[in-house]
Design a protein around this nucleic acid. Structure first.
Lengths: 188, 188, 188, 188
DNA sequence: CATGAATGAGGTTTCATTCAT
DNA sequence: AATGAATGAAACCTCATTCAT
């Protein structure tokens, strides 16, 4: 048990160190030696935890790739509050550090999985929107796919501008303001 | 005369090759050897045109950094159509190729000038918005800076989602749809 | 313990290989690949021991830069035998290999520290000479600084001509003959 | 005629530029581009005057290699004044610039002709010395070869220390002082 | 004869990865 | 399981030299 926990801790230390360095210097400029040093282990030890540099990067990237989108559809209640809640839950899992966020985006943009990301999100959201339109909650003069897409744009737009701005505003707050306006725009 | 032109052509060939490879593989993975080969010149020739790899990257990045934002404020007429026009002009200058766009974003996210970009845009847009609020064109229940920021978010959100989606929709069209909704949201 | 020793040995092997190649081909013509090969290590290993080519060169150069000149002044007894002894000690520490010696000179001539070398030597020797003049051991019709300078000239002249001559005479012997004549010339 | 002169001038300009850069930065660090620029010609032009970089270097090196030593033996009169005169003539032909001198030494030390230099000088001087011993002008308790060698050592010692010292003293003066003492030491 | 764009071999340096200790 | 020395492929960049203009 103790053994297991220690291993898990080391693994996490390595991931934290990597994310921190990626944020500071970008993906490609960060070397395993730096990561190992910051994590307080030897270079060789790194490879006991991750088979390769790429494995680490993949694992870190997955933070932005929301696997849990699927859960959304199963919950009951009016749509807009449910979406709002869901978006906040997503944001909660993200790193609230601007340069880490930039590093994550950078990583995603350079990888193939990126391209599936939007598609997955679309697949999850479109049925919800359609349902909302049938309910009378959402406007019907736009196709559901378009509304879905605008939602995603709004989400990523908020994230990326937040990550690139110099001010101190919180991500939560920014997301809240942004979606307030957006939900009004797509309401029936 | 002929000599000069040839030089200019070669320079452009190198830039095109680089952009194309950056789009395919990302910034850091692209080597000078690849760029040179695709441009049809020798490795050494590359360095007759760009002092270093970084110099090339900087030059390419500047495409996304809109220096012409400033021109916006001097034009007359009602605000919303003017902004719409301006945004289309911006978009016209961008590469309408998804992977090139992704590469550019990737590059910007990893560089310091990125951070000034948002600020510059804000400085250019805020006065316009204020003016629009005074005119009665724009809603007054939100600070001008917030509206400005939402505008920028909307712009980048549209760009980034377009660049990451697998469908064939045009960027112009996507921008048009997006801002239609947005402008309604911020109108008085 | 064993590990440490091996490292030290490897480091020494690299230095020996480098000196040997510098002697054969000169400083600038010698590549790290050659050094590594002769030392029996991989190119990358070289950089585990020396941060750069320059670091190695600096370290090797320091052989000719006599840090121990200072010790001279503290010893007692008549001056000329003391100086003779001191010069022999200096010579003992030098590489008794003509081409290595040439390589070292070449290196020194191309570096700034070279210029401080003479000055340091002068600072160490002038007081000795002055003292010898006060003692009546050395001639007084020449300023101490001039005698000091002639001493240094004599030393380097002997070294350089030895290193450039094709015969087999030993360096020690050559130095002995040279300074015999010189000391007679500066005695009172 | 005019054509010829212009060519000769350009050739000299190139040599001067090269020597000046060698002095500043050493042999290997100086590129043909730098030389051409300082000489005010294009890179390609350089190769109209010198077949290769090495040819230029060889030609510059020959300044220090005294081909005219041979002439010495044919002159009449007492030996020591004749040698003194000869040495001054040699010195006159050298560059009286410390860093140029260092560069020349550096170049010589890294080339094979260096090794023949001493031998040539010995061959020229030994007969003179022998003759001087027979005359009764020079001491007979040392072999002529040894005196010859000491002469050469004295010469190079003076040159090299002058080139490495930071003071402003002239080379002529330094040589004069040095050989005054030396000639006394070898006189009968 | 002068030019300078093009060439590519060759140099230094970096770094992910392996493996003996 | 942890270490860090060794490895070598591969990157960036330099520069002597060629050659079409």
């Amino acid at each position: 048990m103790n053994r297991e926990m220690k291993k898990e801790q080391t693994r996490q230390r390595i991931k934290d160190a990597a994310l921190s360095l990626f944020a500071e210097q970008g993906y490609e400029t960060t070397t395993i030696e730096q990561v190992a040093k910051l994590a307080g282990v030897a270079k060789g030890t790194f490879f006991n935890y991750f088979a390769s540099r790429d494995e680490l990067i993949c694992e870190l990237r997955s933070v932005l790739v929301m696997n849990e989108v699927a859960k959304l559809k199963d919950k009951p209640g009016p749509l807009i509050p449910r979406m709002r809640m869901f978006i906040f839950e997503l944001v909660q899992q993200l790193p609230h550090n601007k340069s880490v966020m930039r590093a994550l985006f950078q990583g995603i943009l350079g990888s193939y999985p990126a391209l599936e990301l939007i598609e997955q999100l679309m697949e999850a959201i479109v049925p919800l929107i359609s349902h909302g339109q049938d309910n009378g909650e959402l406007r019907k003069d736009m196709p559901a796919t378009m509304i879905a897409r605008l939602t995603i744009q709004t989400y990523y737009g908020a994230l990326i501008v937040w990550s690139m701005s110099n001010e101190d505003e919180g991500l939560n707050e920014q997301i809240a303001i942004t979606f307030d306006l957006f939900f009004k725009g797509i309401a029936a």
